[in-house]
């Protein structure tokens, strides 16, 4: 069983404790932080592998905390939201969250989301280098370079790029990407894909307005640009 450290940022003590019980039951190490303004310090101290972040927090709200953490780390962030309102979810995702779960959620659902974010790194260690446009992707090393300089991607953005680059001939539907990259077994929220493609483009495209690396195939999904 994978061990990993999880930082839970939630102001509701019962929920935080319940989350700890569940996650510890899964063999994970859990740190709890109860306020938004303390979150960044807790993050620096505990160096978690995944952050579980409630959107509604006293002090600084979850979206802002997400932004702060994102500014200094590519750690996977999963948001806990109570509202399915488009604005809330999109705001959270745009601030840098990788995924979200809507309250109330089932324990298995949460564990699946956390596991999906932890799952990486231990799969294949054999050397694999992909070429996409003017980008060079070192798959086991998790490094993307353009003309020698490294582009910093979150693990999720990296996975998304690799998934597309491995099969440049294939058009990926949003559902397929949700399954391959996010690890959703059932239908997920396709907005996740849209938002993260935008974030990825803003980092890897020379001109995000006129993408060459990640192309949109109208009505179907996305595909990689020419190698």
């Amino acid at each position: 069983m994978t061990t990993g450290r999880v930082l839970v940022v939630d102001d509701d003590p019962s929920l935080a404790e319940m989350l700890s019980i569940i996650l510890e039951g899964e063999g994970l190490e859990v740190t709890v932080c109860a306020a938004g303004d303390l979150a960044l310090r807790a993050f620096r101290e505990s160096k978690p592998d995944v952050v579980l972040l409630d959107v509604m927090l006293p002090g600084i709200d979850g979206v802002e905390v997400c932004r702060q953490i994102r500014a200094e780390s590519t750690v996977p962030i999963v948001m806990l939201t109570a509202r399915t309102d488009t604005v809330d979810v999109v705001l959270g995702l745009e601030s840098g969250a990788d995924d979200y779960v809507t309250k109330p959620f089932k324990p298995q659902e949460l564990v699946a989301r956390v596991r999906a974010r932890l799952r990486r790194g231990d799969d294949n260690a054999e050397a694999e280098t992909l070429q996409l446009g003017d980008l060079t992707i070192d798959v086991p090393g998790h490094v993307v370079t353009r003309e020698g300089s490294t582009i910093l991607l979150t693990p999720l953005e990296f996975d998304l790029l690799v998934a597309l680059a491995r099969k440049p001939w294939q058009v990926f539907s949003r559902e397929t990407l949700l399954e391959q990259v996010w690890g959703y077994r059932h239908a997920g929220d396709t907005r996740l894909v849209n938002v993260h493609v935008q974030r990825l483009r803003s980092k890897v495209e020379n001109d995000p307005e006129n993408p060459q690396i990640v192309l949109t195939v109208r009505g179907v999904g996305y595909k990689a640009g020419k190698a």
Binding site: D12, L15, M18, I21, K103, P104, F105, K106, P107
Partner: peptide, 21 residues
Amino acid sequence: TSDVSHELRTPLTTIRMASDM
């Protein structure tokens, strides 16, 4: 609506997880 939603959902999530356990 959205406040009620949030306020109700948080305890419900805890109850739900406890009940599942």
